[in-house]
């Protein structure tokens, strides 16, 4: 499976639009979800998600597999664009602050989405997850904090961040298996 993904990425880097479309199919919703988790604006998130994919197509050569996962690479690009968007003029009037909200604060309630895409809803996913876990996941996966930045933001030692994250993600994985 890992090799199959690597081949796909290689084709994509060689400007194969079929491979590009496959990768889009694999990650588009995740990227859109990450952006929405940051800017909390569904329509704008869809537009920005398109921008992200245009960007990764243009910059495909910049991805280096030895330095991280492909998903992590596009996740990083998406987060930066979303945070830029949040800091840009178009969002200044909205009372959204990067530091006071988490991905949980998105406008939820579209049940048909869960049905249509065969995914588990956010609420049921986070059931049983502690507030400090949500905060940590938000900082590290949505807002793109480094381990050090997260440690400073939460006023915890670096090691605590690591072990707590392990515990939180394990809990999330258990939730997914049910």
């Amino acid at each position: 499976m890992a090799e199959e993904l690597n081949r796909l990425i290689l084709k994509f880097q060689n400007k194969d639009t079929v491979a590009f479309e496959k990768l889009y199919g694999m990650y588009a919703e995740n990227i859109c979800g990450v952006i929405n988790g940051i800017i909390k604006n569904p329509e704008r998130s869809q537009e920005l998600c398109q921008d992200v994919f245009v960007r990764i197509w243009e910059k495909s050569a910049a991805y280096n597999p030895s330095k991280g996962r492909f998903f992590t690479w596009i996740l990083n690009i998406a987060r930066n664009m979303a945070i830029d968007e949040l800091r840009s003029k178009s969002h200044k009037n909205q009372k959204q602050n990067l530091n006071t909200t988490t991905f949980v604060d998105i406008v939820t309630g579209s049940d048909n989405l869960d049905n249509a895409m065969d995914t588990i809803g956010l609420e049921s996913l986070l059931k049983g997850l502690k507030e400090k876990c949500i905060l940590l996941i938000d900082l590290l996966y949505f807002k793109g904090y480094t381990q050090k930045e997260a440690a400073e933001a939460l006023e915890k030692p670096l090691g605590t961040i690591k072990t707590r994250l392990r515990a939180c993600i394990s809990k999330l994985r258990k939730q997914l298996k049910q």
């Binding site: 919703e29 979800g33 329509e43 249509a116 588990i120 956010l122 996913l125």
Partner: peptide
């Protein structure tokens, strides 16, 4: 997790 916060493309 990230899919669950997407409004759908």
């Amino acid at each position: 997790l990230t899919k669950s916060t997407s409004p759908g493309m």
